[in-house]
């Protein structure tokens, strides 16, 4: 009955080693200098190589992999579009990740809102009723509009901005994927917790004057900034 294995896709956070030189000696020196600053930190960490230069010497990758092993790091792959480097990677036993271009695109639409609006950004999720205790609403990759109140014990989360045309008494999260320009607008905030891009304030830390009327919350210098409207 019990599963023996399970193969699943997963997003992991890896360290990328960018290479700006195709000279192995130079690279070796720079790497040694870096590692000597915090030797323990680098022990056992998986590393993905990303050459920013072409024309790599045929032995470059093999030497670099050897060097990383000496430093107790574990090179697991390489990210490149260059065909010759891909070939080398095969010999060096490194997995090939496709280039960064595609990956970079994702944070972009959130940053340049205006442009993306024209080209069909997901429209906001609209909730027409109150969000009740124990309920959770998540607007993935978009804004969230709640027409009713958010009651104590409820949570509303959006990757974009949050608008509430009632009183927020539960928890509210905007920019939950780390979008620091996300904002929260609410008819009234008496929230248990207000959070933008991971920076939060609890109810008791919110000044009473901001709990009166329509208010906008944004991030300013890594702090939540409340502004009555």
């Amino acid at each position: 009955m019990n599963k023996v294995i399970d193969l699943k896709g997963s997003i992991l956070s890896l360290t990328v080693l960018k290479l700006f030189s195709n000279d192995i000696e130079q690279t070796k020196q720079a790497l040694e200098q870096k590692v000597s600053q915090a030797p323990d930190f680098f022990v056992g960490i998986p590393v993905v190589l990303e050459p920013e230069v072409g024309n790599l010497d045929p032995t470059f990758l093999a030497l670099l992999v050897e060097l990383l092993h000496q430093k107790q790091m574990i090179p697991i792959g390489i990210r490149t579009e260059d065909e010759s480097i891909k070939e080398q990677a095969n010999y060096a036993g490194l997995a090939v990740f496709s280039g960064e271009a595609k990956v970079k695109k994702r944070p972009k639409p959130e940053k340049s809102d205006q442009k993306e609006n024209c080209s069909g950004l997901k429209s906001a999720m609209v909730i027409n009723h109150a969000v009740r205790s124990g309920q959770q609403v998540y607007a993935k990759d978009r804004d969230l509009i709640v027409m009713g109140s958010v009651n104590p014990g409820a949570e509303i989360i959006a990757d974009g901005n949050v608008h509430v045309y009632g009183t927020v008494r539960g928890k509210v999260f905007a920019g939950s994927q780390g979008e620091t320009s996300a904002r929260i607008f609410a008819q009234k905030i008496d929230a248990e917790l207000v959070c933008i891009a991971g920076l939060y304030q609890l109810s008791e830390d919110i000044l009473p004057e901001y709990k009166q009327g329509f208010v906008e919350v944004s991030l300013l210098n890594e702090q939540l900034n409340f502004k009555p409207l």
């Binding site: 009723h129 009740r132 205790s133 124990g134 309920q135 104590p152 014990g153 409820a154």
Partner: peptide, 13 residues
């Protein structure tokens, strides 16, 4: 009141 709110959510779901 909070528990009633919770049960209302369950009623709706």
């Amino acid at each position: 009141v909070r528990d009633s709110d919770r049960i209302l959510g369950i009623l709706q779901a």
